[in-house]
């Protein structure tokens, strides 16, 4: 399998490869390399700790986009006991860039909706790299209304480089579709939990991201525009995206500090893609905690808090 390795991951990946080799030799030739393996594992851990504690914002954006990172359906598979995907917006089409369906997690019925990226070129042709058409947002809204009808909480997974900027998308009202979701989600009479698992770009992310609680994984980003988009407007040069990422303060920690994210979840050492099973396990625990928390409020309290949560955002002088 061709692996994509980010610059700052290279050394770690090399150590990982050495460990793998040694383990293989142990198996194949009945050799003993325990001391060496142990030594290398220690080296890996200390190097990884050092590297990941000092990532700059652009490096985190790169991690959020890592092609080996778990996507929505990967998490659903690990977290949900049962899952049935539901398709279509009942108006025009089914958009594979947003998936949604009914699930059970620890005997709780939930509606799960999320952006879905593809793992390879063929998949991405279908998933459109996780960039939804208006139908995706309209399907999401249909499912959310369904969840409201059955009085079940909604979990959304956010992972998109943006709503698709194409001819058809504009023709069929991309702006209206997103606006309608913001409008309706703000008054849905069920708890909504949103989790940023990768990229959160602009209105395309927000279109399924209005929530009572916003949780972000450690190596994710969320902002008003992609760093590339920002750079191409501000500097007329998309390659200055790293600078734009710094300027816009896009990381999970930034959003927590700005009071937008309610919680940041630590990822396994080296990021979610190095240990997806562990990541899913952590995520499941967090989801159950969050649902428990949301259950402690009455619906009226919840709606009031939701309105105030967004009403308070902003910095101004009078």
């Amino acid at each position: 399998m061709a692996k994509i390795i980010l610059d700052f991951e290279r050394e770690l990946t090399e150590i990982e490869a050495l460990i793998r080799d040694l383990k293989e030799r142990e198996n194949l030739y009945n050799e003993n390399h325990q001391d060496q393996i142990h030594e290398l594992e220690k080296e890996f851990e200390s190097l990884a700790k050092k590297t990941y504690a000092n990532l700059n914002r652009w490096q985190r954006v790169q991690l959020a986009r890592h092609p080996d990172r778990p996507y929505t359906l990967d998490y659903i598979q690990q977290i949900a006991d049962t899952w049935m995907e539901l398709h279509g917006d009942r108006r025009f089409a089914d958009d594979p860039a947003i998936v949604g369906g009914i699930a059970q997690i620890a005997e709780t019925g939930v509606m799960i909706i999320g952006h879905q990226k593809g793992r390879n070129v063929k998949e991405n042709m279908i998933r459109n790299f996780g960039m939804p058409q208006p139908e995706g947002y309209r399907k999401a809204l249909r499912l959310m209304k369904l969840s409201e009808k059955f009085n079940k909480p909604i979990i959304t997974f956010i992972d998109t480089p943006g709503a698709y900027p194409g001819l058809g998308a504009e023709e069929r009202g991309q702006g209206e579709a997103i606006a309608r979701n913001l409008f309706e989600m703000s008054r849905l009479r069920v708890p909504i939990l949103s989790i940023v698992i990768g990229e959160g770009a602009s209105g395309g992310a927000l279109g399924i991201g209005v929530a009572d609680r916003l949780v972000m994984l450690e190596h994710t980003w969320y902002s008003v525009i992609t760093p590339e988009g920002c750079a191409s407007i501000l500097f007329r040069d998309a390659t200055r995206a790293p600078q734009a990422a710094e300027a816009m303060k896009v990381t999970a920690q930034d959003l927590f500090d700005l009071g937008i994210a309610d919680r940041v979840i630590q990822e396994p050492l080296g990021g979610a893609h190095r240990n997806p099973l562990k990541m899913a396990e952590i995520l499941k625990r967090v989801i159950l905690e969050e649902l428990q928390l949301l259950k402690s409020f009455s619906l009226d309290e919840l709606l009031e808090q939701r309105l105030n949560k967004y009403g308070q955002v902003g910095v101004y002088e009078e």
């Binding site: 409008f183 008054r187 008003v224 967004y310």
Partner: peptide
């Protein structure tokens, strides 16, 4: 939305849309 205020600008979309939902109701 205004880039210079980053994600805070983005959230103004919800701030306005959520109020309009109340107006509608």
């Amino acid at each position: 939305a205004r880039m210079q205020e980053g994600v805070l600008s983005l959230m103004q979309m919800v701030k306005t849309a959520s109020r309009l939902a109340r107006l509608h109701d």
